[in-house]
Design a protein around this nucleic acid. Structure first.
Lengths: 140, 140
DNA sequence: TATAAAAAAGATGTTTTTGTCCGAAATGTG
DNA sequence: CACATTTCGGACAAAAACATCTTTTTTATA
């Protein structure tokens, strides 16, 4: 459903949303254990997310990663897109190029529903919104 | 959503359902091009499906692969299970072990719906049923 | 302005998935 | 029974995903 890298990315973003802001940045070494992601790999992923504008970062002493309030308003889908690109999520289940609503493959309708719901949720739910869930007891 | 191998498997099963039966078996070389799957890899996948009872096969001259009427009655999910096992489809989106309905992770509810619908469709739709769709114009 | 701290960038290593190849076992047919 | 044909099974190869390591660049602050 989501690649390992994307899962790591989501965990990282949510953790940052909860525990950082412009004045309290987090370094990789400060939280890789908390979210159970290999340290060096997390660094790579954050780099990518930063480049794509999904998280914020600053170098040097007192530097680190954090979520700006703008970052927090992004929908979940932007994390997925930053890591694995948009294509993967919306391409045909059977990877048939010509498949679309007008010329659906055998599984198109069968899977369409689930995929539509999934995408819709990821497009409509912001990081900010998820943080509420966490505060209401959902586990990260 | 589904691995490449599983997609190949589904295509192969559907093709066999359409073009083979006990008296007209198909050899790998007869249809790997039609479904656009690497020949040797398709052979491997069919072997696996055969071992798991999802497709039927016989060796030697006049041999090949086919779907028995029993095979055709199997739900789609059994193809997925044969290739990638059941676990992958139903495990937590964030791969959090403790995640379940009583102790949901942040994404559990968000994704739950889509996943439930997806699984339900794959459990309830048989190969036989899909063949009807194809005859009604859906592309394979 | 020198220093140390941090992310950025790039090179390298490992594992899993995908894909290929070849010999062994089975089986219908002359 | 001999033979050709086909799947079966295992070994091997290539590519992608996952992970680590090292060097460079930026920057706060002493």
């Amino acid at each position: 459903m989501l690649t390992t890298s994307t899962k790591y990315a989501i965990k990282a973003v949510l953790f940052l949303a909860l525990h950082s802001d412009e004045n309290d940045k987090l370094m990789v070494k400060d939280f890789f254990e908390a979210i159970n992601v290999p340290k060096e790999y997390l660094a790579k992923i954050l780099q990518e997310l930063s480049k794509k504008g999904v998280v914020s970062s600053s170098r040097g002493p007192k530097g680190g990663f954090y979520l700006s309030s703008k970052n927090k308003k992004l929908p979940l889908i932007s994390i997925v897109e930053a890591i694995e690109g948009r294509h993967r999520l919306q391409s045909c289940v059977l990877s048939i190029n010509e498949c679309d609503n007008d010329n659906p493959c055998v599984l198109h309708d069968l899977v369409g529903n689930a995929k539509t719901i999934f995408l819709k949720n990821f497009e409509e739910t912001t990081v900010e919104r998820l943080i509420e869930s966490i505060k209401e007891g959902k586990v990260l």
